[in-house]
Amino acid sequence: MRKEIRLSLAIAASTLVMGSEPASARDTRYELKMADVQADPLYAEHVPAGVKFYFADQAAPAGQNLGEFVTNRKTNSFGKQDEEACTWAMISAMKELGERAIAEGGNAVINIVSYYKKKPFASDTLYECHAGAIVAGVALKGEVVKVGQ
């Protein structure tokens, strides 16, 4: 009798699983304030202080262009608020851009735009972040330059 009940339950469960539609992953798009990220204490702790950052159309000093670079940073968002996960992903992306600037001999990154899935989003004050149930991500593209001191 027990075997029959277990078999019936297994068949019922299999039928439910096979008949259900696949779950779609959450991918919520946010436009968040860069000023909030820069105000976070982790920003000063992780982003190189010797590098200046200029977003979209912000006026930037002229300098020697050392190349265009893309970052694509992800962070675990499980159990976190989306904005918290996005802040950490943005700090991580800015850290990577800053470290790349230093490695290339530069001291600034200009024309920074969000570049999620290679689609530019340009803003002087906002950045784009995508958050799901498990991962949040920020992608940036910018030009590393060396400007006079």
Rank of each mutant, 00 (worst) to 15 (best):
G67N: 00
V17S: 07
A62T: 14
Y54T: 11
K33D: 13
N65Q: 10
G19H: 00
L16M: 09
M18W: 03
A35L: 14
Y30H: 14
Q81G: 02
Y54P: 07
C86I: 04
A13C: 03
L16H: 01
E31W: 00
D57H: 13
A60R: 06
E84L: 13
E21Q: 09
G79Q: 04
F53P: 04
A89M: 09
E45A: 14
A85R: 09
T75Y: 00
M34A: 14
V51L: 13
W88Q: 12
F69I: 12
D40Y: 10
D40E: 13
Q38L: 15
S20T: 11
E45R: 14
R73S: 01
A49P: 10
W88C: 01
A59C: 00
P22E: 07
P61K: 12
E84H: 07
G67F: 04
E84K: 13
Q58R: 08
L42M: 14
E84P: 10
M90L: 10
N76T: 09
E31C: 08
S14Q: 04
G79C: 00
Q81T: 03
A56R: 11
F78C: 01
A49S: 15
K74F: 00
A56S: 14
A35D: 15
M34T: 12
G67C: 03
S14I: 09
F53S: 03
S77L: 06
F69Y: 08
R26Y: 02
R73V: 00
N76S: 03
A35E: 15
I91V: 09
D27P: 01
K33Y: 08
A56P: 12
N76M: 06
N76D: 12
N65P: 05
G19A: 03
Y43S: 11
E84M: 13
F69C: 00
P48T: 15
V70P: 00
G50L: 13
H46P: 11
P48K: 14
K33L: 15
G63A: 04
V70N: 05
D36A: 11
K52D: 11
S14E: 07
A13T: 09
F78M: 08
E21W: 05
T15F: 08
M18Y: 04
M18Q: 03
D82G: 03
G79T: 02
Y54V: 08
A49C: 12
L66I: 05
M34P: 12
N65C: 05
K80D: 05
A23W: 10
V17F: 14
I91C: 06
C86H: 02
K52C: 01
P61S: 12
A13Y: 01
T28S: 10
E83M: 00
A12H: 02
L32G: 04
T87W: 02
A59G: 01
E21H: 05
L32P: 03
K52R: 13
A39D: 15
Q58T: 07
E31V: 01
P41I: 11
F69E: 09
M18R: 07
L66S: 02
D40L: 07
A13L: 13
F78Y: 11
Q81K: 05
A12K: 01
A59N: 00
S20Y: 03
T75W: 00
R73D: 02
D57L: 11
M18G: 06
A56Q: 09
M90V: 03
D82T: 05
S14V: 08
N76Q: 05
T71W: 06
S24E: 11
G79W: 07
L66C: 00
S20A: 10
R29G: 01
V47I: 14
A56I: 03
F55I: 06
M90T: 08
M18C: 03
K74D: 05
V47C: 13
A59M: 09
V70H: 02
